[in-house]
């Protein structure tokens, strides 16, 4: 059964040492603030397949001991300052990837198989720095080399969506990568703008854009929960705020100042 809980209760259930999958669209910034408030640490981030301010905040807050990602960037606002500083300092285990390899790893977990073959990648130094990826002779079909990547089964997947219904069905629209995260993860926590009384599974049209509650463990309401990042059909990204973060987070002190303001601002919204 999907539990509807407070944001604090949701965050408190993410344990040190767990792997946490986070998306690039439908980002739970409210959940991120709650994790930092709860003193989250030793998280192993899995970015699906890249991240922006969310990963940078968690890294800056000292909550991350490992990261698997295809990129961390603030987009128009430039590089991700805390990620870049942590890479230079070697302060976490870094697993560089490429977008479709992360999606393929999740797909393997979704299907309950140990690995997934994937096209391309040969010739990339990623193969050198990812000894867990293998190049094998294709066992079927035309002879040739193919890369295989191991299954990725996150302990927790965390994302933000517009709506849940009372049963814990989540409207994800066409953002199927959010479903892919949930299928692969052991548990899925979702923050939503609102909980609606109607049944999201009621019609074919509605159900087609829904992640069923079967895959959803906890739901918490968090209005404007993606802010300052965008949420489709709800609000655009707050580019001024992200640029302000980019400027402040260049230094450790600036980051601390930004973080304390961000945490209190998130509380006021909630």
């Amino acid at each position: 059964m999907t539990e509807i809980v407070s944001l604090e209760a949701l965050a408190a259930d993410v344990q040190p040492g767990q792997s946490l999958a986070i998306p690039v669209t439908g980002v739970s910034m409210a959940g991120t603030a709650a994790l930092i408030e709860a003193g989250a640490r030793d998280l192993k981030l899995i970015c699906v397949p890249i991240s922006s301010m969310q990963a940078d905040l968690l890294i800056g807050a000292g909550a991350v001991s490992a990261i698997e990602t295809s990129a961390v960037s603030l987009g128009e606002a430039g590089g991700a300052p805390r990620f870049n500083a942590a890479v230079r300092a070697g302060s976490f285990a870094l697993r560089d990837s490429t977008c479709p390899a992360i999606l393929a790893g999740l797909l393997a977990a979704q299907k309950g198989v140990p690995f997934m073959p994937i096209a391309g990648i040969v010739g990339s130094d990623l193969l050198r720095v990812r000894p867990d990826w293998k190049v094998i002779d294709s066992p079927v079909g035309e002879p040739g080399k193919v890369v295989v990547v191991p299954a990725i089964a996150p302990d927790v997947a965390l994302f933000h969506a517009p709506e849940a219904d009372r049963a814990g069905n989540i409207r994800i629209g066409r953002h199927r990568e959010l479903a892919a995260m949930a299928y692969a993860a052991k548990r899925t926590f979702v923050t939503v703008e609102r909980i609606v009384d109607r049944n999201l599974m009621a019609t074919e049209d509605s159900a087609a854009g829904v992640l069923p509650s079967l895959y959803v463990d906890k739901v918490a309401v968090a209005p404007r929960g993606a802010w300052p990042l965008p949420l489709w059909d709800e609000y655009p990204g707050d580019d001024v705020e992200v640029a302000r973060y980019a400027a402040m987070a260049r230094s450790e002190e600036g980051f601390r100042a930004y973080l304390s303001g961000f945490l209190s601002q998130r509380k006021q919204v909630a």
């Binding site: 397949p49 890249i50 990602t69 295809s70 990129a71 961390v72 960037s73 590089g79 991700a80 990620f83 870049n84 890479v87 230079r88 300092a89 070697g90 870094l94 560089d96 990837s97 490429t98 977008c99 479709p100 390899a101 994937i118 096209a119 391309g120 990648i121 990339s124 130094d125 990623l126 720095v129």
Partner: peptide, 17 residues
């Protein structure tokens, strides 16, 4: 690698595409 002097965002989908 990994403690590169200058770090850029990452490989995105390039290794595949």
């Amino acid at each position: 690698y990994p403690a590169t002097d200058v770090r850029w965002p990452g490989s995105f989908g390039s290794a595949y595409l």
